[in-house]
Design a protein around this nucleic acid. Structure first.
Lengths: 255, 255
DNA sequence: GCGGCCGACGTACGACGTACGACCGCGTTG
DNA sequence: CAACGCGGTCGTACGTCGTACGTCGGCCGC
């Protein structure tokens, strides 16, 4: 009974396309469909209109091809998304490894934030375990370079990277939600809070939740001033790096 | 054109149910359907079988009621999920605020981790901005208590909480993915890596990605030893708290 | 020149969320 | 006590999605 989960991509299937197990036949090499063209079209759609607009019919349409033709190259939608993700990783800059470890990690964090800003759909697509595509591996290898040779164990290096990237994703998600809300309601985040303020005050009175209302208001005013998610990203990043520096210093002291 | 996004709940609609704007009529008060019973049934389904199994037809079925009857109390599925989330927040323990700020924050992190472990569907449902339900507000107010009166500004208090909770969610997601994979494949995480090891080695050779393969192997062996996500959670939490302590110390030094 | 195979795709099925309007039984009103 | 209206119920149906299946046509190797 536990054989098939429909919502999930078959990892083996995804891996096969990701690593391009099948080389292009001479027949199709010229023009016509290909995994790359399909993925490119799918990413364009998702970038422009979000994951919900990404339909197999839509992909076929964008390529001037029947819906089912897409299935010749891609086993299913879930696997297509897996390839889209790995492709996006492949397009990231591999910033030169320079400066101390802190500058390098900061650089990596910003590169990843930019990735999520360019491809907001990734934040909703990566709910399942990331598939080990070639570009993800290359990215992992490159990013590990930032924390290599500073005295950490291998496991710690992995944990540090996981921590930083996790923070980036959290922040990116928060920022993306603000953009979503603005697109849906047609007003800025500040305007939204403003217009709902009286409504909120009827429930969220200062005497029922004193701390929440005070802090929420303060944070909301920062929002209104147009920097909210950005602040959370910067603040959190510095905190995380500060925390990491404690371990680094520890390891440097006792080799 | 920007009028309706199908995948998203209408915030106003969700808020109306969340704050129970409509009191139960005398008619329906006794037995019969209610928002609470519907939400309860929905949470049970999602807990047991995941978000994908949560269908409006399924909810009606579980309550011995026609599918469309559910829509009498809940305007749509998206809003139902919003209420489910807020209900789950309401069931969290409000651990007493004791110990220093670090112990309190740590406690909050563990309470939130436990929440996500009990309701794994929340990790997939919370992709859009959380709706300001009563229990979320109460939770926010309670958790702010852990960082109050330690010298931080209001905005910093909010940022600290966001940072810690973001880390918890990241870790919980990683842990949940491991569980998903085990349920789908029927093997443990360690077994999965073991069985795919030869496959991976054909591509991921040590000379193409030296760092990635070495560190990945090390991290993978930790996985095999059955603590991987737990380690990432603990390591990251301590780092985050270390980073926060820097600001706290700073603020304590210069009032 | 020809047979077979591979890429393309039209049709169709079974989900899903939910709009619509009909039913029915209760509480209220004359 | 009877008639009415309304709130709660739900069967049917529509549009959308992913995708299984079978067919067709043209190109490549012999």
């Amino acid at each position: 009974m536990a054989s098939e989960r429909k919502a999930t991509a078959d990892p083996a299937r995804s891996l096969a396309i990701l690593w391009r197990t099948r080389e292009p036949t001479s027949r199709s090499a010229g023009q016509g469909l290909s995994v790359d063209r399909i993925v490119r079209a799918a990413i364009d759609i998702a970038d422009a209109e979000g994951l919900d607009a990404l339909t197999m019919r839509r992909v076929g349409e964008a390529l001037g091809v029947g819906t089912m033709s897409v299935y010749t190259y891609v086993p299913g939608k879930a696997e297509l998304v897996d390839v889209m993700i790995d492709t996006a990783y492949g397009e990231m800059p591999r910033s030169a490894v320079e400066g101390d470890w802190r500058a390098r990690l900061e650089r990596i964090a910003r590169d990843n934030l930019a990735l999520y800003q360019r491809h907001r759909w990734m934040l909703r697509a990566e709910t399942t375990r990331p598939v080990l595509g070639p570009h993800l591996v290359a990215k992992y290898d490159h990013e590990l370079g930032a924390v290599a040779d500073i005295g950490l164990t291998d496991v710690e290096m992995d944990a540090v990277l996981t921590l930083v990237l996790g923070h980036v994703k959290s922040s990116a998600r928060a920022a993306s939600e603000v953009v979503d809300l603005e697109q849906e309601t047609g007003m800025t985040d500040g305007q939204w809070w403003q217009s709902h303020a009286p409504w909120l005050e009827t429930f969220l009175t200062a005497d029922s939740y004193p701390t929440a209302s005070r802090v929420g208001t303060a944070a909301g005013q920062q929002h209104g001033a147009a920097y909210g998610p950005e602040y959370a990203f910067e603040f959190g990043l510095q905190r995380v790096l500060d925390g990491i520096s404690v371990v680094v210093a520890e390891r440097a002291a006792t080799p």
